[in-house]
Simulated assay, not measured.
Amino acid sequence: MVKPTTVRLLLSLAVSRGWSIRQLDIHNAFLNGQLAETVYMRQPPGYEDKLLHNYFLVYVDDILIMDSDSDRVTTLIDKLALELKVRDMGVPSFFLGIEIVLLSGGMLLSQQRYMKDILKRAGMVDCKPVITPVSSVKITDDVAVPYADPTQYRSLAGALQYLTVTRPDLSYDVNLLCQHMHAPTTTDWVSLKRVMRYVKGTLNLGLRISRSTSMDIHAYSDSDWADDPNDHKSTSGFAVFLGSNLISWIFRKQRTVACSSTEVEYKGLADIYMQKLHGSFLCYMKSASLLRLLLDYGDYPNPSPKAKTNTLSAARSQEPQQPAVPAANPSTCSSVEAANPASNKINFRPPQVS
């Protein structure tokens, strides 16, 4: 099954390189999917040619095919049609619940239909919208009152998780909501409804993917310090860009308690560097042949990764201060603009692989 990061990464490459993109639907995919043995797949002939690339994004019976040659895409679809009942849907417009709106110089990934469905499930179609997903006044209760319908809370919080596929501006707030799934309180329910009201007011937002001339990977990281009053753990977040396009992001609690704000920032940087760039992120890209694809299209002399920050006091004494970036207004910008922090930055160029 294709992962959201892979979808965003390959769409970014396709837009930047002018690849042909076609969407297919396979009828009765489950009937054709009974396998009693392990199946190994090999890259098709021609993959080694840097000028010719074809990639499949497969989720059950929904498929996106990308290739640098549109004729090769047509030929491949014709061959698939000889073996399976295939419906050629042409240029993709709706994939995995995500609307793909073609724009000049790129595309917009929108989940507007999905947002309206969530609001309908919550009975908040006509709710009053707000401009921020979290109240500026922190709500605290002396006595926690369990929410009467925890199943409803878990259902809506889980639905909001999938919305973060194209809405990075919701990732932090949804992460907080999901931390209370086991025993939600009335206060948690109020916080969830606040997020729903924010969704109501931002139905037009989505993730824009634009044509980019750069294939460099840039990562931004930021952390709070002991913000959770219960366990005093900090929350870290990062955003990874391929060129000018946002392709990966996450917010999560750190595993241990930090003794200072400097320590928590270093932990955030170490987490993104070791686990996402040097670790699982690159291993995942390599296993999917995406790292080699980046190497084919980028000029990577194999330098060491460089980290820059404007929040750590230790770094301030060694590097020039970077100008602050004003907070984005969610009502006047796309999601990618609202989720582009300038706090901690790692400039990373993938190493060469043989």
Rank of each mutant, 00 (worst) to 15 (best):
C283Y: 12
S234N: 09
A122I: 06
V165T: 13
S354G: 04
S334M: 04
P44Q: 08
L176Q: 03
A239P: 01
L108N: 10
Y220K: 06
D296G: 07
Y273A: 10
D25Q: 02
D224W: 03
L294G: 01
A157I: 00
L82P: 04
L109C: 14
F348T: 12
A314T: 04
Q179I: 02
L293P: 11
P341R: 05
R72A: 11
P305V: 06
P4V: 00
N245R: 11
T74K: 14
M66W: 02
Q321T: 06
S331N: 10
A288D: 14
Y47I: 04
Q111W: 03
D228R: 04
Q254A: 01
V165D: 14
G46K: 00
V86S: 01
L294F: 05
R87Y: 01
S12K: 10
D61P: 04
D149K: 12
P323G: 04
S334R: 00
I209T: 05
L76W: 02
P146H: 07
Y284C: 11
R255Q: 11
D117W: 01
N32L: 01
V325H: 09
G105K: 06
S313Y: 00
S70F: 04
T309L: 06
L13M: 15
V2L: 11
T256S: 15
A307K: 05
T6V: 08
I100L: 12
K50W: 13
D173K: 08
Y266F: 12
G33M: 06
A226Y: 07
L269Q: 08
R208E: 09
N329H: 08
L291P: 06
M107Y: 09
C283H: 14
R197V: 10
S136W: 05
A148Y: 14
A144D: 08
D25M: 04
H53A: 11
V174C: 02
W189M: 14
S135L: 14
P45E: 13
L295G: 07
Q161H: 15
S335E: 03
Q34A: 13
S68T: 14
Q161Y: 07
D49E: 15
K306I: 13
E319P: 02
A307H: 06
L31M: 09
L312H: 13
